[in-house]
Nucleic acid binder design. Structure first.
Lengths: 146, 146
DNA sequence: TTCCCTGCAAACATTTTGCAGCACT
DNA sequence: AGTGCTGCAAAATGTTTGCAGGGAA
């Protein structure tokens, strides 16, 4: 997804296109993994000294309501990332280091034969965590990124 | 797991057995699903009027460090429940209404053939959410439980 | 010009910490 | 009696809300 598309979508909904929102869009487009509200703030405040946390939260919520970003609960809190472009059902490999996510289409639900008596499945969660190639090889790439 | 076992385990570690801790143990033993710290507090304060939130948090952490309860991140926050007794690898059906969890032993990892180039899997998450028999049939059981 | 967006301040919710007194062992 | 547990108070975090001014359309 391109910055332009995001901006266009916001504009189409009658929202104002501010410098902050452009920067926020770029931030997500450029970042493959998840971002915490705090990380977003810290990235933005470098460009906009006066940046406030509430604007970050407000805009994250806006982007989420527009289905541009999605929220995910990690063990250490809420994080956001660009929603997957595809509508196809899929799951993710998630790098524990850089949090980059890589989609795959195998779904285990096809193989679950037995449900508890009377259990009615509604949704499921299947994610595989590990280390991506970059974070394994580039020993200190992670350190550098921090 | 029985209240007695939990108490015994705490006692063995040299911890004091207080009335609150007995009640807390009973609470988890009697409750099949997950509990938020707030729910724990609200249940406990009925018995101990002076009960404070910090005691709840402290004891939850103690029980967690002893591997008696486990923590789980839901979309609406952290919740706790008794750790599964079995050591066998397994996953869970989780009721969206009462949050009761039912273990099953099928594991999709055996069927994932391809990993992204260089990806090194470490752990995974597979949970199936839905409605258990009780919460489907007893139409208002849920409402009553609230 | 209009009205949305922003920063500020403050409120709110959740979780943690220091301390003194009380209770378990 | 000794020490760990508890409640209280306060602080640290994370998130939300009301308001007035500034900026996008």
């Amino acid at each position: 997804m391109e910055v332009q598309e995001i901006i266009q979508a916001m504009s189409n909904k009658g929202m104002r296109i501010t410098e902050q929102r452009k920067t926020l869009a770029r931030l997500f487009v450029d970042h493959e993994g998840y971002l915490t509200p705090k990380e977003v703030y810290e990235a933005m405040v470098q460009t906009y000294a006066g940046m406030s946390f509430d604007t970050v939260y407000r805009n994250l919520r806006v982007l989420q309501e527009m289905d541009i970003v999605e929220q995910f609960m990690f063990e250490d809190g809420i994080k956001f990332r660009l929603r997957c472009h595809t509508d196809e059902h899929h799951h993710h490999f998630i790098c524990l280091e850089c949090e980059r996510t890589i989609p795959f289409h195998y779904c285990p639900m096809d193989h679950v034969q037995q449900y508890p008596e009377g259990f009615k499945p509604v949704k499921h969660k299947f994610d595989i965590y590990g280390y991506c190639e970059t974070c394994q090889s580039g020993q200190s790439r992670q350190a550098a990124a921090r």
